[in-house]
Design a protein around this nucleic acid. Structure first.
Lengths: 336, 336
DNA sequence: CTGAAAGCGCTTACAG
DNA sequence: CTGAAAGCGCTTACAG
């Protein structure tokens, strides 16, 4: 009972015009009013819609953007995905999604498949690109923007928050709050976000004549971060911990409260990074740096589409500033 | 500096064979060993990969599955998306993603766009299909499976958990725990999951000679659910609330604890539905019905691919049973 | 097994 | 403005 696929030829026959005329009407080229009407009516009656894939063969534009993403369990990413999808949809693009673990072999396979689909551009969220992959994308003329991840390579665009500055704000806030034994559970060392936040944090502490009493790599993983926090309790006994993202911070708070029976922030202050929706939930009430997901998405889409429209546009490195969101998980400075 | 697109013709020239030969090698048709080697070598040297979109024009298979999803803030869906993407990727398919609000006009637009991309199949997660849309997909010969949503229409496949049975288990558990003033904050009435869970819950309570002291529509929204819970406290004073999904249950727990200073489960028992990862976090420790996301995804992919392979395969309605996960948010029966 | 040719559903110069 | 024709990058009968 499957109707045979209806094509522009069918519409042309029904409308009594040439196939080219039908094409012109749907591709927005010039056509007389009467032609447009005849074609639209016939198309409507037949339920015709142009085949985007056939069109892409000629125009060289698939209207598909490949999105590579690794961590969907960190709410920051589903949220970004939703925004990205909506913003791109408005511009007539759609997202072909690829899950990649952080491993580079995985990213390699995925980018290969992406190219098979003739995507017009690639967005990688929380994933880096090897030099080899970067070369392939450049050779294929496909713009790439790294979302929430930085890389030195000048051929790649990137949109991040200002991680260094953000971490400095956190350090300043903790010091102003009178903390003296400050520890850090960092984001994954293999990620630019993890490294930059750590560097900014250490730098700012140094300007106050302090250094972290301990630093551990939380690897953006709940269990690893929670274990690290418990370990720190036994050894350096921090009065505050800056955790490299909210996703880990929730695990740290849970461990501190439920395994170590500590009160937050009375016994220890916790600060996260991202400001995912959950950070505002009463159970966590997490003080954290906001990564302005909406503005990051805007910048990402804008940069990518600009490069798609004109391949000669230079790749951009954009870092967006965000505010420190002060809630109840960290002791506040006296004057607040 | 963009290399011109390299095609099967280029590979053919370099390998010293015909273009058809190149095509055969990559489409898995028969070819002699020497031809295969020559072609593979030439392709490797040139970095050639077949254009999936051009191929689709002839085979009629785009290897693209359209996924329509509404709620990415409920962790159940990002989780399912990840599993779906991986399972489909293994079968050589990829996901083109579409965000739709629950509104039907939105779904309509989205399905139109989906058809433009010649998707081989459609999965809708937490979204229903109008009769009109169902017709269009059927006319286009595109199989649809509803993920975590049911619909009477026999032309549509669906994969859900056994919502009715699940809700009954919850009712039985609460009654066995000695609760007598049991309320329900349901999932959105416009959704099959919301309605079925409510019906199952009421039915099971009735077998114990009870009926809910109150029922409110939580609309799968945190704020609505939290308000409803607070309202119930003032009026019917329930000793237990079954909340229609975990996402709302967290909001209810937060409101009960932080706005009403209640202890859970001492003052009131809360049970959710889904068993998202967060339900296991110590802050919530939520007793809930598990929706076996892995098995639901398996069934979804299997059903969809079977229908793609053979359009005459009848649509399936699959309901998968899950266990009640007993944690600490609801008072347990004496004998546990 | 292999090559020449037709054709998938479109867009886009090219004449008229 | 409009139609006939070429061509996008493939696959697939069809001969050989």
């Amino acid at each position: 009972m499957v109707k045979p696929k209806i094509t522009s030829l069918d519409v042309a026959a029904k409308a009594g015009v040439s196939q080219s005329a039908v094409s012109r009407v749907f591709s927005g080229a010039s056509a007389s009013k009467t032609t447009v009407k005849k074609v639209r009516d016939a198309a409507e009656a037949l339920g015709y819609r142009p085949n985007v894939l056939a069109r892409s063969l000629i125009t060289g534009q698939s209207k598909i953007i490949g999105l590579v993403v690794a961590y969907l369990d960190n709410q920051f990413y589903p949220d970004a995905l939703e925004r990205l999808s909506n913003a791109l949809q408005e511009q007539g693009y759609h997202i072909l999604i690829f899950m990649a673990s952080g491993q580079s072999t995985d990213v390699e396979r995925v980018v290969g498949e992406l190219l098979d689909y003739q995507v017009d551009g690639i967005i990688t969220a929380s994933v880096g690109m090897s030099d080899e992959l970067t070369k392939r994308c450049e050779a294929a003329g496909i713009p790439v923007v790294l979302f929430n991840r930085g890389q030195a390579d000048t051929r790649l665009s990137q949109v991040t928050s200002d991680n260094h500055a953000g971490a400095r704000k956190i350090a300043d806030f903790l010091v102003a709050g009178g903390h003296t034994r400050i520890a850090h559970i960092s984001g994954w060392e293999g990620s630019s976000t993890g490294r930059e936040r750590r560097a900014g944090f250490i730098d700012a502490l140094a300007t106050h004549g302090l250094e972290p009493v301990a630093i551990a790599d939380g690897k953006y993983t709940r269990d690893v971060a929670a274990q690290a926090a418990l370990e720190m309790l036994k050894t350096v006994k921090p009065d505050a911990i800056f955790v490299g993202n909210d996703h880990m911070a929730f695990a740290v708070i849970d461990a501190l409260r439920h395994s170590a029976q500590l009160n937050i922030p009375e016994d220890i202050s916790i600060i996260g990074y991202d400001d995912v929706p959950m950070a505002a939930w009463p159970s966590y009430d997490l003080t954290t740096m906001r990564q302005p997901s909406n503005r990051m998405v805007e910048a990402t889409v804008e940069t990518l589409l600009a490069q798609i429209a004109d391949r000669s546009v230079a790749p951009q490195k954009i870092a967006i500033d965000g505010p420190l969101i002060v809630r109840g998980s960290a002791r506040k400075p006296k004057d607040m």
